[in-house]
Nucleic acid binder design. Sequence first.
DNA 1: CTGTTAGCGCATTCAA
DNA 2: TTGAATGCGCTAACAG
Lengths: 340, 340
Amino acid sequence: MKSHQTTIIDIAHKLNLSKSTVSRALTGHPNVKEETRKAVLALAEEMDYQRNIFSISLITNKTKTIGLIVPDFHTSFFPHAIIGAQEAASKAGYNVLISQSNESYETEVANAKVMLNNRVDGLLISLSKETRNFDHLKTFQKRGIPIVFFNRVCEEMMVPKVVVDDYDAAFKAVEHLILIGKKRIAHLAGPDSLAISRKRLNGYRDALIKHNIDIDEDLIISYDLTLSKVRIYVKHLLDSINPPDALFAINDPTAIEAIQVIKQMGKRIPEDIAVVGFSDNYASNFIEPSLTTVSQPVKEMGEVAMNLLLDQIDNDISKWKPLIKVLNTELIVRNSTVKS
Amino acid sequence: MKSHQTTIIDIAHKLNLSKSTVSRALTGHPNVKEETRKAVLALAEEMDYQRNIFSISLITNKTKTIGLIVPDFHTSFFPHAIIGAQEAASKAGYNVLISQSNESYETEVANAKVMLNNRVDGLLISLSKETRNFDHLKTFQKRGIPIVFFNRVCEEMMVPKVVVDDYDAAFKAVEHLILIGKKRIAHLAGPDSLAISRKRLNGYRDALIKHNIDIDEDLIISYDLTLSKVRIYVKHLLDSINPPDALFAINDPTAIEAIQVIKQMGKRIPEDIAVVGFSDNYASNFIEPSLTTVSQPVKEMGEVAMNLLLDQIDNDISKWKPLIKVLNTELIVRNSTVKS
DNA sequence: CTGTTAGCGCATTCAA
DNA sequence: TTGAATGCGCTAACAG
């Protein structure tokens, strides 16, 4: 015995009106007598009427729903980006269907399929670390569904993107290490598949070059972001004959893990080895020593990306522009590089 | 010029079949000639046909979508619970519509409305700290939409819930403080509106009573979980004539904040004051000193809750049972209470 | 085994 | 200003 959801027909019956009139009243159509409209609206309110979104979607082919795919929920980065995106969508009357790819290409493809099947009006995505093929996303373009990337973007697709200047931020972070007197700066880099990894690596390289420091390829380690491997790499670096005196990590979780290992090995931070991270995670301020890192406007990133997407949804496909928004970063100097 | 989504009609035309036959072939109905079925399936694949979920929802009144409302994304707790819930839903072929109430009652009500409007097949929710009225949730019951609570539950509603034994966990945490020799144990409690606050407070009280320690109401401070206020309360406690020698915090973020303040005031942890948290957040292991805390199976919580919900969806409303699942906790002893 | 028909709830023609 | 009729894409009941 399910309680019947109020429909237009119910209202029409009670008021002795036609369905179309009720529909018009409900949708704010002009050609309705004020009296009629009021009666309909009042009864709708009383009967707790809600438009059936399926019939509308069926007609309009729109869902007022945005798909959002992120690599994970573990680090504080994406949850915060989601908050920004959610707020922006909500303001515009859109819902958000969220899913996480779990850093897996296959899951990302599956997620994309779900989004497609749910006929989202647009897709916001930050790529998994494994993603090198983009067919699952190009499908959206073919269907005329706008896409916007943020943070982890696809360079070959000409769609709007929201990023920070990873090159510049990395450059500044490494330069900071140089300026405090460090000479052998290691880089625990991200997987080559991610543009942010490559950009941060380039920033690292160019900072060294600018300051006439030879690049030692042995000090550059690309890894797949599996935190448990950090221990191996850090030990390897510190146990080498000519160990580094500084470490620039691809992100904060990596840096935090590295700090743990370094401390366990009895080395002092920053005296023996200084550490810099990237992203300013929640824990970075609490860890001992507190972590010098690059702060990104994460929430704003989600917000800007969502608004870029909503712009496309509102506009004709012919007007879509592959705008790339670059947000500002800030180097936050803490005790892992400079003792306070 | 939008690319037309393939429909059953398209396939029917191309194959010179009726719509119903195509539909039957697509839905695995038995009464279809094997040859026909194969032809349909092949063409559907080729034309990248996808069922239009709106027409189906319109007919079945089901959406294969679960609503999920959490108070926030900031702490690591809810993101992890979401992961568990998401996985369980995904396995059963359900999508999840996620939203956060931002710890606001009004936002929670708005979120609930969105869920209702999107005709979710079920609702999973952890209450905001402000929620004292539950009409917005009872609406779901009236509509025959099952609800399951997790973590922050509504005691007055007879629906399934997934929790940990907060009373017992708090009792053990406080007993641990007593056993290491602490006598004046303060409690930074959560808002009275949340059942978990009350239960943890009761566990605190009973542990003291069991060990014949007088309860000093001045050592119990209920607060609204606004982290910025922790500083005030901790200072107040430590500056008092008879300061506490231990602090049991309602959750880890609170405990972590407290540790910061205590350290800044030049007190030693755990010698001057020991600290215990609740939840085992990501940062708790990194903070100095590392935080003794109660670990909860967060991901499992989301998973169990989702499965409980799916059970209800699959069953007739008459079979719904207000099952309460209590998951195990574990006290993780770290340096904030016992120096290693 | 296959085709025809009706209807899910609504917006939108076309008539009145 | 209102009503009747059509169709969005699909499933299901009813015929053949």
